[in-house]
Design a binder for these strands. Sequence first.
DNA 1: GATAAAATTTGATATTTATCAATTGCAGAC
DNA 2: GTCTGCAATTGATAAATATCAAATTTTATC
Lengths: 187, 187
Amino acid sequence: MESLQKAIAAISPLSDEGMSAFSQGWKHWSTTKDFVLLKENTISDYIYFIEKGVARIYYYKNGREITEWIALDGQFFLSITSFFQRTPSYLTIQTIEPSHVYGIHHDDLMKLAGEHHEIERLLRKMVTASLILSQERMDSIQFESAQQRYEKLLKTSPQIVQRVPLTYIASFLGITLETLSRIRSQR
Amino acid sequence: MESLQKAIAAISPLSDEGMSAFSQGWKHWSTTKDFVLLKENTISDYIYFIEKGVARIYYYKNGREITEWIALDGQFFLSITSFFQRTPSYLTIQTIEPSHVYGIHHDDLMKLAGEHHEIERLLRKMVTASLILSQERMDSIQFESAQQRYEKLLKTSPQIVQRVPLTYIASFLGITLETLSRIRSQR
DNA sequence: GATAAAATTTGATATTTATCAATTGCAGAC
DNA sequence: GTCTGCAATTGATAAATATCAAATTTTATC
């Protein structure tokens, strides 16, 4: 809980009252390896925060798994489209290590955002940060070579490379497993 | 002004008071063809709304122009990174037809969002919609062929194809002018 | 520790799109 | 109307990465 509160405060500081109201909204899960938090085709009700562990978000495209996101200790994650549009998710979310995960339900969060201006602001800032990331990632996929993307990942999240199977990393980088393997071998 | 208010209300309805406070924050420009709204390397101060006309957002990558976004009548647009992070923009924004454009200054918007909970909520919804779009676009660039992306554009914004030079459309779709030309000829 | 299963690597070839170069088409200025 | 310059098309070739098919290495299980 403390790490969650710290992560929240780092995005947008809350008053004691706001923080305490907000903190009460979160549930907690202790998961095993390959525990499914969200199943494909269901509406995603939660924004998650991973206190310790690794989660991956993936979907199927042309019959194969595409990892859309990998979240490590201290990060928020969610199925953006499903959560905000309240539509069935094409995404599946699972923890790929035993993990500690917090989650806040959509309805609770919206209620809190309606009641507390500062929580609305926090949410706005979270979405904005996510948008900036999304833009950067798009630029990366469009203009950087497979090699450059891998090296950037090595630099920015070396932990991912250590803790996550290469199959997942490959599709996360938007390349095939074989291409990733070749990139790694020539170093 | 009326079309702007309608566009705002469609995202998140405001009280009369909120709408009137918000409306006062917007400036108006009547621009000529190729009028520059934002210059590269300056901090982007405005969120824009194009009432009538066409704007394009572009930047330079490896010595050539990349069109990042094209906004037509009734759309909002901005340099996301620069506006929210208050850093110099690598983007340039210009109207490519004589246009009517509204803009609200960053500081005014933030002040309003701080004073009016409902404007904060509106802003959050705008950013969320933008995030969802960004995700869809990323998926499109990563998995759809040049052909599919062009056909989708034809379907979703046929106006763009009519009013915007192909050079701009090509980089907007993430392909070269030559590839776009070949796609068009085989139909 | 032996064995099965899964993950990763390696190789040969195919596909998509980019690049560079030349040509053609077309709109505005005079 | 003709000239000039930019926009678009067409052609030939190259580059990056995907695909399919094995082979090899690593990991987990009994």
